[in-house]
Structure formats: structure tokens, C-alpha cells
Design a binder for these strands. Structure first.
Length: 559
RNA sequence: GCUCUCGUAGCUCAACGGAUAGAGCAACGGUCUUCGGAACCGUUGAUGUAGGUUCGAUUCCUACCGAGAGCACCA
């Protein structure tokens, strides 16, 4: 995100430092940072302003730090200290944290700006495997975070229902009288030995594009059936409903205009019978390595790229200021070409189109692939997860109500967290035992911490209130971490990295486990202390619950 | 050949250019007459190589080594 929308505590402290800095001889455009302290002993927040400012003023960082602190408005701070090589460490007053918890900051954003978020591009005739799930899981969390912060965001599935693969599907139907993933794979493998099959398939697609009645009918049936299947993902994985289903075929009538535009700008050239844009020849420095982009194939068929050009332009006409694509990183070349052509057409400005790429999932060192038979099907993983969760519940909590619901929520939580806790740029090594490990750094661990908090509140029967009592270091940490959720979400969304939120929640849950382990609540004799701890638990539960919902994981009162 | 990702502990992963590189699993040792043991506490253990920029580099730059992906008629 290019927006400057942070208005949490970091931004507030930054502003205070800018003011204090200008009274200390620094210019207001000095670039410096305010971040979370790496360790509670360094306070809540830390800034490097003395380190970057000292060079300009040619004085020691420590001396500049002292000067800035003297000029600083300290009303919200308990302590402000100079430490290390020249950091200023800030500890907020407890009452300030409590206020931030009760009234989380809301970012100032451009409410008119609509965002189009494209994720989950299932291919027809291929069953969903773990690799396909990544786009849906990441996209769904991004959508939830946008909505939480007040953005206008709409999701679109962009189902792959067009292109040569449909030639194959139609051909398979005509040959075998029906189509499924196995027959599709069979035809593909036959095509490897028999080149004429590929030609036939291409011809079937061309016929489809030319409105051949029979092919249209076959195609429509395939699409309808597949769509029904794919949209089960909303239930099976608790993915928010999609706002749009604008599949590739939707752009069929929107491509000719784009072609006209490309011709008008003299970008389209004929080469080996195909219509192409030679990006090495048309663009500047940034496009010279992008090579050749095929717009119309030599058989007259359209390409994915042309459809994507039409897709972006359509989105713009619908009033979307940004178009985000959650697609795996193997397509980064494609998106570079897409954005480069749009730029040349004058249709896109910097930051209006973003490829949110992610690493793919491998299994035993190989990429998941239908063709290679190296498959881990989503439904199999979920079924196995359900089995193991059910077993654990039978051991630990046999009297649990709503067992089915809990089993589902825990399984989905484990599956999603496995994905979301990792940086999306990294490839993921799929491992049954790791996905299905419900201890330690896992989805169920977060849900467990939430359930424990609920349990304590249930036993106590009241919510407590923040009283003025001496608190432990752990309690202080809980208080601080409870205050920063909105800020963390903003940071997580800034580079579209859900793992920032996931990692924060894991640390928070760990802290909470430690807290209720060392601080008894219901048995506490001192009423004021009890009130405080209950209030702390109550607010921490809200924060953790909200965080889990943002990850698309259901908070459970009992499990 | 060109381009892009990625090389961190035995394994799987974290770390806006910041302070002592964090976790989980595995191993070993503890906690409990338990507000729920899917828990808590501790021990062992890591930045591919060589330079450079910086007050400060896992992070940025260059080269090399290694892994993966992409580079016109698949999407």
C-alpha cells in the first residue's frame, strides 16, 4: 500500500518527535523510524532519531537524544530514556494503553477509493489441491483486513473458464462422452505422443470462440458444474463470499476494444502468424527484458494476456482505483508484461495494479501437479485433520457440545494458520505431520488460548474493570500487546503480508498462556487485583478473537 | 543465455537497515493436591562464500556457489 494511513501510536510518537526535533535543530523532513521495542526492557516503542539526526548536526547521538527529550511533550509517557547506541525508548502510561484498547485507532483512508481484489482462480476439471488453496486463504485474509480498517474492497474469483484447455475439455467430451479430471489428464498425456491432438484441441477452442453451438453447449455445462463445485470452498474453508465472479469468458466481448487500442498505438505486430507486442522494442529500460507478449495466437485464438488487459480496463471503468492479483509467483513475468503494456497504453499508473505473488507448495521436494500425480488434495487434508481433531476431543473433552462445529473450526484453523504464518514469498514444504500438529506454533494453539480466556471469564461470571493496581511485567506486556492490534493490521496490509498479523497473534497467545499460568484470577483475594485481571482477560480475549477472525479462523469458547 | 524468487539451528519457518538473530518440531531436564496439559519453565543448537555501502547488514549493492521458477502461441 502506498497510502500514508497510519494513525496509531507509532505515528503519534513520530509526530511528537518531529516537533521536539525541530526545537532541537533538526529539519522536519528528517527520515527516521519509530518501531516496537525488541524487548520489554527497552520500553514499548523505540526511535532511532538520534542516530540519524546526529550525523547532520555533527554531535553525538546521546547528546542529541537528551536535547530531543528535553523538548519533548511527555504527557502520554511513563518514561522516556536514552539507551544503547542512541535509541530513545518510550514507555506509555498504562492509562494511555487502556484508552487505546477501549478505542482502537481507525486509519484515515480514502473512502471513495474502491479496491478490486482478485484471488482464487480455479481451473476447471482439476480438483483443488493444497497449492490452489493458498490464493484463497491469502486473498480472504487481505479482504478481511481491508474491511476491518474500513476500506471499500470487492473480491473477484476470475475463474479460468476460457482458453485452449477448453479445447481439450471439449475434445475429451466428444471422444469419451463425458469429462472429468482423469479423462482430462488422460487426453493430455495422449497429446504428448500425438501432436495432432493438440491441434484438434486448439481448433475446438477456436470453434468455441467463434460461437459454435455444440461447443458452447458443452462448455456451458462444464462451467456450471465446476462453479458449483468450486464455490463449496466458501463453506469448507470459511472463505468470505465473493462479490464478483467475472471469469475469463466474461471478457470475451471486451477484448476487441483492447485490440483496437493496441493497433491504434501501433503496438501490435505480426510475427510468425501471431499478433504480438514486442516489449523489448517498444518500451524503455524497464521493459526491455520482458520479451515478446502474444496477444492473438497464430490460430486466431485469444490469449490469457489479452483477457487480462481487458480485465484491468474493465475494472477501471467500474471505478476500481486499484486492482490486486493474488496469484503465485510463477506468473510474475506475465504480470510484468501486463502492467508494461497497460502503461504504454496509458491505462495504468504506478501502484494501480499489484501482483501479490506467493511461493508455491511443494511436497517431498516436488511441486504439486495434477499431471505428475504428485497431489495433496485439499479435501484429503481436511478429512485427516477432522479425524485427528475428533480423536483429541474424545480424549480431552468428551462432553463437549457442538463437536462437529468445533472439529471443523479447529481443522480449518490448523490448515489456514500453517499457510498464513509463513511469509507469502517463501515456498512451502508441505508436510502432513506439520499441518496436523496442533501443538506449539499452530492455529489450534491460538484457539486454545482464546478458549482458556473464555473459560476463566465464564468461571468468574463477570468482566471486571481496569483498576489502579500494581501489575506484573507479564500483565504490562499483555496490556501493551492488546493495544496494538489495529496498528499491526495496518502493517500487515502495507506489504500484503498476512504473516505479520499471524506472528503477532502467536506471540500474543504465548504471552497470554504465560499470564494465566502465573496469575490466578478467580481465586485472587484482592478484589481490585481480581477486577484488573478480569478486565485484562476480557480485553485480551476481544483482541485475540478479532485477530483470529481476521485470519479467517473461528474463535472458540470451548474446544 | 536472460530475468525473478529463495539459501538462517538436525527438520519446518520468523526477523520495517537496529540493541543479545526469534519460534515450533525433534532431543534432554523440569512445573502440576491444575481458574482446561492442545499449557508453562529451562538446556543444547544457525545467517552458503568473498567483498562493498552504513554509526549499525540475515536484510541494501557486486561477484561467486547452491536450489526452484519463468522467458510467444498453457493459463
Amino acid at each position: 500500500m502506498s497510502d500514508k494511513f497510519l494513525n496509531g501510536m507509532k505515528e503519534k510518537i513520530k509526530q511528537l518527535l518531529v516537533d521536539a526535533g525541530s526545537k532541537s535543530g533538526l529539519t522536519s523532513d528528517l527520515v527516521f523510524d519509530v518501531g516496537y521495542s525488541s524487548d520489554p526492557k527497552f520500553g514499548d516503542y523505540a526511535s532511532n532519531i538520534p542516530l540519524v539526526g546526529s550525523k547532520l548536526l555533527k554531535i553525538k547521538p546521546a547528546d542529541l537524544a537528551k536535547k530531543i527529550i528535553e523538548n519533548l511533550d511527555q504527557t502520554i509517557f511513563e518514561t522516556v530514556e536514552v539507551a544503547g547506541p542512541g535509541f530513545i525508548n518510550f514507555t506509555l502510561k498504562n492509562e494511555v494503553l487502556i484508552q487505546a484498547i477501549e478505542k482502537p485507532p481507525k486509519p484515515e483512508i480514502n473512502k471513495k477509493e474502491k479496491i478490486l481484489l482478485e484471488y482464487f482462480q480455479p481451473n476447471i476439471a482439476k480438483p483443488l489441491h493444497m497449492g490452489h488453496l493458498r490464493t484463497a486463504i491469502i486473498g480472504d485474509v487481505l479482504k478481511r483486513m481491508f474491511l476491518y480498517l474500513g476500506y471499500k474492497v470487492e473480491s473477484d474469483t476470475h475463474m479460468g473458464d476460457w482458453g485452449t484447455q477448453f479445447g481439450y475439455l471439449i475434445l475429451a467430451y466428444k471422444k469419451y462422452g463425458e469429462v472429468n479430471d482423469k479423462l482430462y489428464a488422460q487426453l493430455n498425456s495422449e497429446a504428448e505422443n500425438d501432436k495432432s491432438i493438440h491441434e484438434q484441441a486448439k481448433q475446438e477452442f477456436v470453434k468455441l470462440e467463434k460461437h459454435d453451438t455444440e461447443n458452447r453447449k458443452i462448455w456451458q455445462n462444464l462451467v456450471d458444474e465446476s462453479k458449483k463445485q468450486f464455490l463449496q470452498i466458501n463453506e469448507t474453508l470459511d472463505i468470505l463470499p465473493f462479490d464478483h465472479h467475472w471469469p475469463e469468458s466474461f471478457y470475451e466481448d471486451k477484448m476487441p476494444v483492447v485490440l483496437q487500442e493496441l493497433k491504434k498505438k501501433k503496438l501490435l505486430v505480426e510475427s510468425q502468424g501471431a499478433q504480438i507486442v514486442n516489449l523489448s522494442a517498444v518500451g524503455g529500460e524497464d521493459t526491455k527484458n520482458l520479451g515478446i507478449a502474444v496477444i492473438i495466437k497464430s490460430d486466431g485464438g485469444t490469449t490469457y494476456l489479452l483477457r487480462d488487459l481487458a480485465t484491468f480496463i474493465f475494472g477501471k471503468k467500474q471505478g476500481f482505483a486499484k486492482h490486486l492479483y493474488v496469484v503465485d509467483n510463477r506468473q510474475s513475468h506475465h504480470y510484468k508484461q501486463l502492467f508494461a503494456i497497460l502503461k504504454t497504453l496509458g491505462e495504468i499508473k504506478e501502484g494501480e495494479g499489484v501482483h501479490i505473488d506467493y511461493g508455491f507448495i511443494s511436497f517431498k521436494g516436488e511441486v504439486l501437479s495434477t499431471r505428475k500425480g504428485n497431489m495433496v488434495l485439499a479435501e484429503d487434508v481436511l478429512a485427516e485433520a477432522n479425524k485427528r481433531v475428533a480423536k483429541i476431543i474424545a480424549e480431552k473433552n468428551p462432553d463437549l457440545k457442538n463437536k462437529e462445529k468445533v472439529i471443523h473450526a479447529v481443522s480449518v484453523g490448523a490448515l489456514k494458520y500453517f499457510d498464513l504464518s509463513r511469509n507469502r514469498h517463501s515456498d512451502i514444504e508441505f508436510d502432513w505431520d506439520k499441518v496436523l500438529d496442533f501443538e506449539g506454533d499452530s492455529g489450534p494453539y491460538l484457539q486454545y488460548a482464546y478458549a482458556r480466556l473464555s473459560s476463566i471469564l465464564r468461571k468468574a461470571g463477570l468482566d471486571g474493570k481496569f483498576t489502579d493496581v500494581a501489575i506484573s511485567a507479564t500483565e504490562r506486556e499483555v496490556l501493551f500487546k492488546s493495544s496494538i492490534l489495529a496498528e499491526v493490521v495496518q502493517e500487515s496490509l502495507k506489504d500484503y503480508l498476512p504473516n505479520i498479523l499471524a506472528n503477532y497473534l502467536f506471540n500474543f497467545a504465548t504471552l497470554l498462556n504465560k499470564f494465566y499460568h502465573e496469575s490466578p484470577v478467580t481465586q485472587e483475594k484482592d478484589e481490585k487485583v481480581k477486577d484488573f485481571r478480569l478486565a485484562l482477560i476480557s480485553s485480551a480475549k476481544n483482541v485475540l478473537g478479532q485477530g483470529l477472525k481476521l485470519l479467517g479462523i473461528e474463535p472458540l469458547d470451548e474446544m
